[in-house]
């Protein structure tokens, strides 16, 4: 089983991103589970969401404390939340930032992957909504879900030109971090 934890701010679509990975993993013939860290919704406040992916049906219902992967939508969260908490040493953390990895001073042995998702989202979507762009980065950096399935999941949620724009953002991010 692979466990993913999303860190974002209320309104940035962390929950949607977690759901889209679950839908994509299911497209890849795997079992999946996505859920928010249930809270009282407040725009801008730190939020979390979780996704599990497995080859067997998923029974566990607790939050994720030792993730294989962490996705950080907003680099300013590093000042207020221990985003790398419990991250497995062999795991990866993907951070939306234009800063250098060494400037982030993260306390983790895991791989740190940085991507300027805000820039990509502004270019491709015209809005600084980074949740889908980061899915492309996750896909490229980890290979846990296929790009094809991520695209399918996106199109199931966003139709028409909005869907196409999201696919373009995902592709750019995917290529930007591919191993």
């Amino acid at each position: 089983m692979k466990e993913i934890r999303f860190h974002g701010r209320g309104g940035q679509g962390a929950v949607t991103a977690a759901e889209l990975i679950a839908i994509a993993a299911f497209e890849d013939k795997k079992y999946s589970q996505a859920f928010p860290a249930f809270g009282v919704e407040r725009r801008g406040a730190p939020v979390m969401a979780f996704t599990r992916i497995a080859s067997e049906p998923i029974r566990i219902r607790s939050q994720i404390y030792e993730p294989d992967y962490v996705i950080v939508q907003d680099v300013t969260l590093l000042e207020v939340v221990d985003v790398a908490s419990g991250l497995k040493p062999e795991g990866k953390i993907i951070i939306n930032t234009d800063r250098d990895t060494k400037d982030l001073k993260l306390k983790t042995k895991a791989d740190v992957v940085t991507i300027d998702a805000t820039k990509i989202a502004l270019e491709k979507l015209g809005r600084p909504i980074v949740n889908t762009t980061l899915l492309g980065a996750f896909c490229g950096a980890t290979g846990e879900v296929s790009l094809e399935s991520i695209n399918k999941a996106i199109l199931s949620r966003f139709s028409g030109s909005l869907g196409e724009k999201n696919l373009a953002a995902i592709k750019t991010a995917y290529e930007g971090v591919s191993r």
Partner: peptide, 12 residues
């Protein structure tokens, strides 16, 4: 059914 845990989870 448990609130949030089952009402808000996405699963197959």
């Amino acid at each position: 059914m448990d609130g949030f845990i089952l009402t808000h989870v996405y699963e197959p």
